[in-house]
């Protein structure tokens, strides 16, 4: 999908509505022919970033594959809120097995389809960050190194939200969770821990790795389309704010996702065969405080006296990410 340049002065915001686009460029969600793969009536929280992300990802993938697709889901919020027996929100063949085996199950499905000569049916697997970067990481790495024909999507809300907001390997430093409370000299999650799975995915030199957020849904759809146009192991890491776990108003989901990107905290980029091929530049760099303040998980940083030293460290991390991925446009440097 080619991008159409939009003049943002037309809206005065960073939101580019579909009405400004040529009909052919509008999102899959804006089309009457969308598949509603994850249909309404599910039980996600109000403002759930994961539900939004999954809906866009799967509908875009369904459009590319013309509905010839199977989804594998690891245990987690997405699985729980979509399939309370005897109901299901899924309008595609959908399989949930366990928490830590989504990638291997998807490999098995792909192998079966190949054995049956039905490689026209594509496989998308999805999990939260716990199911991806922690408990499912062994099977994920196996799926990557074998280059199995699976698009694996991680909806990263930076913690174990389904079990009551505990820390995961994707929880950022200083964030308060149920087991990294704002207690002691180093409140919140510890600095120097955690991992950024997209870089590890790239180390497998798989055909495609990309990151996205639910703030830029055109970009998300375009990346799904790119990924589904390829074969082999592909990885898409989508930042999905969680109002419950982040302690943010449900109306803030999209704005927080955008601020995560615009502050440089979450880099949005694409990589092929292990090399970065494109980055989404910051449109207007914001200090990390703008992203941190609306979230109660960082409230301990902003009290009186607060922890300006920790905020500084978080800013330094964002600056490093900006430099590392080259997120500033020429004129902004």
């Amino acid at each position: 999908m080619a991008f159409q340049e939009i003049k943002l002065y037309q809206t005065g915001t960073f939101v580019a509505g579909n009405r400004l686009l040529d009909p052919a460029q509008r999102t899959v969600q804006a089309r009457t022919g969308r598949s509603n793969t994850l249909t309404s009536g599910h039980r996600a929280c109000r403002g759930c970033g994961e539900a939004l992300g999954a809906r866009y990802v799967l509908d875009a993938a369904m459009r590319v594959t013309k509905g010839s697709m199977v989804a594998v889901n690891s245990t987690g919020c997405l699985e729980v809120f979509t399939t309370p027996y005897p109901e299901s929100s899924w309008q595609l063949p959908w399989l949930h097995s366990l928490f830590g085996n989504g990638p291997a199950v998807a490999s098995g499905v792909a192998a079966a389809l190949k054995a049956k000569g039905r490689e026209d049916i594509r496989v998308v697997a999805q999990a939260g960050d716990g199911g991806t970067v922690d408990i499912g990481f062994g099977t994920l790495s196996g799926m990557f190194e074998r280059n199995d024909d699976v698009l694996f999507v991680c909806y990263d809300n930076q913690g174990y939200m389904n079990t009551g907001v505990q820390r995961s390997g994707a929880t950022p430093p200083a964030a308060r969770t149920a087991n990294t409370k704002a207690l002691g000299a180093e409140p919140g999650n510890v600095f120097g821990q955690g991992k950024f799975a997209p870089l590890i995915a790239m180390a497998h030199e798989i055909p495609y790795v990309a990151t996205a957020t639910v703030a830029d849904l055109h970009d998300l759809e375009a990346k799904v389309e790119t990924a589904m146009g390829m074969r082999g192991a592909r990885y898409l890491h989508v930042l999905v704010p969680c109002p419950l776990g982040w302690g943010a108003d449900s109306s803030e989901t999209i704005r927080l996702a955008r601020l995560a990107k615009e502050s440089g905290i979450f880099p949005v980029f694409e990589a092929e065969q292990g090399d970065v091929t494109a980055v989404s530049k910051l449109r207007r760099q914001v200090p990390v405080t703008e992203y941190l303040r609306p979230q109660k998980r960082y409230a301990h940083l902003f009290g009186d006296p607060g922890r300006p030293d920790i905020v500084e460290r978080l800013q330094a991390r964002a600056d490093r990410t900006i430099a590392r991925f080259g997120l500033l446009s020429e004129g902004d440097r």
């Binding site: 594998v72 399989l95 097995s97 085996n101 291997a104 490999s107 098995g108 499905v109 192998a111 079966a112």
Partner: peptide, 9 residues
């Protein structure tokens, strides 16, 4: 796990 996926397919 792969057997689970393949058998389900």
């Amino acid at each position: 796990s792969a057997c689970i996926g393949a058998a389900a397919a």
